[in-house]
Simulated assay, not measured.
Amino acid sequence: MSRLLHRVVRGCALGVALLAAGPLAAQQVVHVGGAFFPPYVLKAEQSQHAGLLPQLLDALNRAQSDFRFIVRPTSIPRRYRDFEAGRIDMSMFENPAWGWQGIAHSVVDMGLEDAEVFVARVESGRGQGYFKRLRGKRLALFNGYHYGFADFNADPHFLAKNFNAVLSYSHDSNLLMVLHGRADIALATRSYVSDFLQRHRQYAGQLLISQRVDQRYLHQALLRPAAPISAAQLGRLFEQLRRNGQLAAIFAPSQIAVRPGVADSSVTAGVTD
């Protein structure tokens, strides 16, 4: 009798487990490209759970049960190929003009705004007027980035010749060059400067951040045509996170603005090809 009861209990437990696993098994996986773009996406060795993208995906996963959003590592130049090949379904914090011409995609406005700003070292008598003229100053720039002040010409020789630019592959290095007097001005997103000062509190009050903006980033999510989730569905999820304050909780601490009432009306069905 006890053996029979044991079998019944095991059978019930298995049935409950299968019922519980059913909805999870039915979830459609959405692969989101994770290319190094701090503070949005950090390097894998810095922890795959760090950065703003994993926080956003966690919020999207908690908000519904039909889709499971996961990060799939890629790189800035490789993400286009991964997108076309179907290795990633979505690329976030994008602009359709950043090399996506000719690649079929639909667009969802994330309702987030960041900006590229000029940064100098605080010195006596130095104010916002310091950023009005760039020529004659030593600039620390990120190699490969397109800057508005240079008419989006990313050629290193052009930048070095016309703006006395030193190029690196590290925003930290560029800001440290400014702090240590090896460059006059660096450019970085407002969110990155905020992240840098949180990580290096010893430099608090030592950086002068421009009110002048080189370019504004109105972040968008790009979906491939065969993605498991549609632009309309994703737009509704962003609107849900905007309304319940989760977007602000994730992004406001990094000085990234959440634009009100955008995600509900910003989904486009257009496909670029």
Rank of each mutant, 00 (worst) to 15 (best):
I88M: 03
D172Y: 14
Y192I: 01
G129D: 13
S210T: 06
D151G: 13
L197R: 07
A160W: 05
A165I: 04
Q198A: 14
A160M: 11
L223K: 12
Y145D: 14
M92I: 08
F93Y: 15
A104Q: 10
F152M: 12
M110V: 02
Y145Q: 11
Q101W: 05
A154E: 13
Q215L: 13
N174G: 07
Q202L: 10
A85C: 00
V107A: 05
L208M: 08
G99D: 04
Q202C: 01
L187M: 14
G86H: 02
H146K: 14
Q206G: 01
D214H: 08
G99E: 03
N164G: 06
A85L: 13
N143F: 11
V178H: 05
S91Q: 08
L222T: 05
D114H: 02
A186K: 05
H146N: 10
S210F: 02
R199E: 06
R87F: 12
F131V: 06
V117D: 06
A160E: 15
R135N: 10
K132C: 01
G129Q: 09
N153D: 15
Y145F: 14
L222I: 04
V178S: 09
G127Y: 03
L207H: 04
V178L: 03
D155I: 07
R87Q: 14
K161G: 02
H219Y: 14
P228C: 09
H157A: 15
Q211M: 04
Q128L: 01
E113I: 03
V122D: 02
W98I: 00
A227G: 07
L179F: 10
A227I: 09
F163G: 11
M90C: 14
D195G: 00
G99W: 07
F142Q: 11
W98G: 00
F163W: 15
G136P: 08
L175V: 08
H157Y: 13
E123D: 05
D89T: 05
T189S: 15
W100S: 02
G127W: 04
M90K: 03
G111P: 00
R201I: 00
S173R: 14
L208K: 04
N153R: 13
Q220Y: 03
N162D: 13
E116A: 07
S168R: 13
L207A: 04
E113M: 09
D89Y: 04
A188V: 05
G111M: 03
G205F: 08
G148N: 14
A97K: 01
K161N: 11
S124G: 03
V193D: 03
Y169W: 09
L141P: 08
S191R: 03
V119S: 03
N95W: 09
Q198E: 14
Y147A: 09
L134S: 09
K132S: 14
F152L: 13
G86P: 05
Q211K: 15
Q202T: 06
L222W: 03
L112T: 02
L139K: 08
E116M: 15
A165M: 10
Y203A: 00
H157C: 00
